[in-house]
Nucleic acid binder design. Sequence first.
DNA 1: CTAATAGTGTCTATTAGACAGTATGTT
DNA 2: AACATACTGTCTAATAGACACTATTAG
Lengths: 256, 256
Amino acid sequence: MKEHFNFAYTTDLLIFGINSRIDNIRALPEKNLSILLVKRTKEPFKDKWCLPGGFILEDETSKEATTRILKKETGLSNVYLNQVKVNDELNRDPRGRVISVSYMALIDRTLIKEELNPEACWFNITLTTKDNNYEITLTSEQETIKYQVKKTTLDQKASQYSYQALRNDLSFDHAKLIIEGLMDLRHKVNTTDIVFNLMPEYFTIGELKQVYEIILDKKLINSAFRRVIADRLIITDQIIKTGGHRPSQLCKYKGE
Amino acid sequence: MKEHFNFAYTTDLLIFGINSRIDNIRALPEKNLSILLVKRTKEPFKDKWCLPGGFILEDETSKEATTRILKKETGLSNVYLNQVKVNDELNRDPRGRVISVSYMALIDRTLIKEELNPEACWFNITLTTKDNNYEITLTSEQETIKYQVKKTTLDQKASQYSYQALRNDLSFDHAKLIIEGLMDLRHKVNTTDIVFNLMPEYFTIGELKQVYEIILDKKLINSAFRRVIADRLIITDQIIKTGGHRPSQLCKYKGE
DNA sequence: CTAATAGTGTCTATTAGACAGTATGTT
DNA sequence: AACATACTGTCTAATAGACACTATTAG
């Protein structure tokens, strides 16, 4: 039957975490949103960075494959994982027809105990808006990758957009998958409590506010933030001292 | 290569529209959210209802295939269309491994001029909440299909749920795809202007409010609704008389 | 007249923004 | 003391909910 054709079925993972860097001994560590990339060892795109991922096997679902690959890359299981979308453009892989499902994983990086694979590396993400388009900067300790993304409105009513990466230094269509994942993350941060998946079990309100701010790329009002978030937190009687300033109470996500 | 299998790659369409039925000559027509289903002519699930859909061909993307099938079923093009998710459970099709992408299409039913396919039929949807689970009723002029859906929380923080249809009278996993589409629709109605894709070009504020109410399954406050929606509308100077009550101004979506 | 929707106005309650002020650590 | 964050309080602005009131049609 002509309707069954031969294609590869793969998954691409957007593994997001929070990175903290101490700049000033008196100030809070500067936080960044980060993503895990791996260096390709084979053609095509040999030596270029790409998203972790791989083939989905005959006896597993895309989610099972993604869980397996996530475990391999980070050592973690029981992690937040959600489908972003299917990518099935005809020429997205020069080797032939490859249908990929992108998944977003949000992890608490403090839980990673093992060494990363030698080919894997965390990149900090900076996303800035330039007259309704975007500029993404990915920074590791060794290098910086920067690219512009053009945003096109597909349906204004539904806030449906398509994104096109200009000057792609990553592999395949992964530059596009990253921006799509970031937009999905932003949207979910605005409408759910998904950020808590990026936080350790205990954290301070100041740290939580920082994470909201880097994902949404805007400053939040301190008192309003505390007011709104308070319902969703259990404030423990533990106090943490983190620098040249008043110590803070540790909090925990309340859930139900 | 072992990694390439002979899977089938298909699309399933959730085509939603609004149905109006006149009950009381003096009252506004009662509106319903409706979905287009087709009756299977072959095994498996022969004579059961299923979502429109079909195989994605070797030289087209899932979106192109969906556009093609939508055109075939409704005669419409230039319609709002969005990916919902990939469904790739191992046993979702008894014939073998079938990976399907579900798409949601929102259409203005008043634009359909041609006759439907003889095997196709619109079903009105009623979605009620029963202690955190759902009951879906699909009603056509000939028959009623009713099923319960169990809701399981996968990640409370991210409001991520999975749905399981109990007693499935539809084909394949389509009962589940419908509830997932409805949840996606509800979420988008709350966060975007997507409803306007279901409306004709000109409509009254009362009709628009009815559509919001049936999708969200709750009554809205009249004055508050008018206040909030006003920014997004162009109010024309055309007046429409629709029954034993004060006539109404016709509106249009403003867009930019 | 009555039923039914359209449309306006206004009071109140809730939520968000702005910002000042106090508290408490380290360097 | 200076810096940096934690935390509280309060005033104001904006938004949402409740509800009454007027308008206008068909039957």
